[in-house]
């Protein structure tokens, strides 16, 4: 393909996620998907929530199928939610701690994939420190395998974004009426990128990115967000406040002077939460750094839905896994 032919390159890039009927086969990024696809995920998750509210924890949808959790980067929390989601769909789960196994012996990512495919895995849940790793895996798997991105570098974390959308929908309803502020280290955040794409696709008219230039570069505007430099204006009358985790390593790269100054400028406490609408909800992808980006009183307060996000995470991942695996299997039919 001619590399100067941008439109078709972008299209090919986006279509890797879809089967030949245009349905979600791999879930690598929220970018480029349509509203129906995202809404289908949210509604399916709603049904799983309903089943679990009825006391039905496990359904037989993925019985006889094998899900391999390929975690090239440590994350016990995320891996556990994927594992639980797969088990509640009756799938067999293989947890592969890559850091300590094959690649440490010099085996390439491609070799690892081929070995797992030879073991007849049906789905790879991939977490990797490099942006684009999940795309790379999706480009190289056999047609019967579905790939879910559980976070790739700074690029995307689409299931986290979808559970955030689910949370917003449950508490706020119609996306087309909302103002949403994302506060903090957006430039290094795969979660924020996926949230921004999803919010746009679902029709949120006012998406704000709040933070200092070192964490929120002006060029983010090209993704369709408004950039704010202070909390007072950034949070003014918003319906949803999403606080991002501030990684400790940001202090070493001269991006910020100190966590103390960061909290004084951008930390969310009850006083500053008043800039937002009185019924605004506060979200955080976790784990929280209390006293760095969020005050404990806010994290535990009445407007916080942080623990709800964790609960919804299972249902949303069940939805994504069953939709993607179903469409992959269906795409295999002659």
């Amino acid at each position: 393909m001619n590399p100067t032919d941008q439109a078709s390159a972008q299209q090919a890039f986006e279509q890797i996620q879809l089967n030949r009927d245009g349905k979600l086969k791999h879930f690598l990024t929220t970018e480029g998907l349509d509203r129906d696809t995202l809404t289908h995920i949210l509604e399916t998750a709603e049904s799983f929530m309903g089943a679990s509210d009825q006391g039905l924890k496990k359904v037989p949808l993925l019985r006889g199928r094998t899900v391999a959790n390929l975690f090239f980067e440590n994350s016990t929390r995320t891996r556990t939610t994927f594992e639980l989601a797969a088990k509640r769909l009756s799938a067999d789960v293989l947890n592969i701690d890559i850091q300590r196994s094959a690649t440490a012996k010099g085996e390439s990512l491609l070799d690892t994939l081929n070995n797992l495919q030879a073991m007849l895995c049906d789905m790879f849940v991939v977490r990797h420190a490099e942006s684009g790793a999940a795309h790379f895996v999706a480009q190289h798997v056999a047609p019967h395998v579905s790939v879910i991105n559980a976070g790739d570098g700074r690029h995307a974390h689409p299931t986290q974004a979808m559970l955030d959308m689910f949370t917003i929908r449950r508490f706020k309803g119609d996306f087309r009426q909302l103002s949403v502020a994302i506060v903090g280290d957006i430039v290094h955040s795969r979660v924020a990128r996926s949230q921004i794409h999803a919010l746009k696709i679902l029709g949120v008219p006012d998406i704000r990115a709040v933070g200092p230039t070192t964490l929120v570069p002006q060029e983010l505007q090209e993704m369709g967000v408004s950039v704010y430099r202070d909390l007072a204006s950034g949070l003014a009358d918003v319906d949803v406040v999403i606080m991002l985790r501030l990684q400790n390593e940001r202090m070493s790269g001269a991006l910020l002077p100190s966590t103390g100054e960061y909290f004084r400028q951008y930390g969310l406490d009850n006083r500053r939460l008043k800039y937002a609408k009185p019924d605004a909800i506060v979200m955080h992808p976790g784990p929280t750094n209390r006293g760095v980006e969020i005050d404990g009183a806010v994290a535990d307060g009445a407007q916080s839905v942080i623990l709800k996000q964790v609960t919804y995470g299972i249902a949303v991942r069940m939805a994504v896994m069953s939709i993607a695996m179903g469409n992959t299997a269906a795409g295999e039919q002659p």
């Binding site: 970018e31 942006s131 684009g132 790739d152 570098g153 700074r154 690029h155 995307a156 430039v187 795969r190 990128r193 570069p217 060029e219 983010l220 090209e222 993704m223």
Partner: peptide
């Protein structure tokens, strides 16, 4: 720039 930003590349 925006392309690297979108792809999450340094």
């Amino acid at each position: 720039g925006p392309v690297a930003q979108r792809l999450g590349l340094n």
